[in-house]
Computed example of a mutant assay.
Amino acid sequence: MKNFLLVVYFTAGLLSHTLAQSFVYHPNNPSFGGNNPLNYSAMLNAAQAQDRNKDPATLTTSRASATTTNSLTNFAQSLQNQLLSRISSSLIGNQFGEGTLRPGTYTFGNFQVQITNGSDGVVLRIVDGQGGETSITIPYF
């Protein structure tokens, strides 16, 4: 009986050793590294949610933009936009309507508009005060 129990225990020990696997821990939580390299967005979101430091550069630019933008500047910009809109609609209306567009150079605030008759149509050359230039051709029909 002792020999039988000894053989049973020995056989059970061998079988359990051959059926066992090595246990390797793989973290699935992205905060602990995880095993998926595409979990960087979860890490970045967690870091940004905990970040309480503010970038000094964004604070100074937001203050500067808040002080330079006021109602008088907004009104002047709106007035200039309306004036340019009315001039452009008048120029287009004159070209396609009853009136004719007279060649010449016109100055509106910081903008200089030069109107010339070209071979393909009326050419509008618009130059702003900062060195920008735009050329528009209105074709003849």
Rank of each mutant, 00 (worst) to 15 (best):
H26R: 05
G33V: 05
S41G: 03
P37E: 10
M43K: 15
N36E: 05
A46Y: 13
F23D: 09
V24K: 02
S31R: 05
L38P: 00
N28H: 02
N53Q: 11
P30L: 02
M43E: 13
A49D: 02
H26M: 04
V24E: 09
N45C: 02
H26L: 09
G34K: 01
G34M: 04
S41K: 11
N45A: 14
N53A: 15
M43N: 13
N28F: 01
F23G: 00
R52T: 15
R52D: 11
N53V: 10
P30Q: 06
F23C: 03
N28T: 14
F23V: 10
L44Y: 15
N36M: 03
P37Y: 11
A42K: 07
A47I: 10
A46S: 11
N29S: 12
Q48R: 12
P27W: 04
N45S: 11
Q50C: 07
G33R: 03
V24R: 06
L38Q: 13
N53H: 09
N36Y: 09
Q48F: 13
A47Q: 14
N29V: 01
G33I: 04
A46Q: 14
Y25A: 05
L38C: 08
P37W: 14
P27Y: 00
Y40S: 10
N53D: 06
Y25D: 02
N28I: 01
P30K: 01
A46N: 14
P27T: 09
M43S: 07
Q50Y: 08
A49Q: 12
Y40A: 12
N28Y: 04
S31L: 12
N39S: 15
R52G: 14
M43A: 12
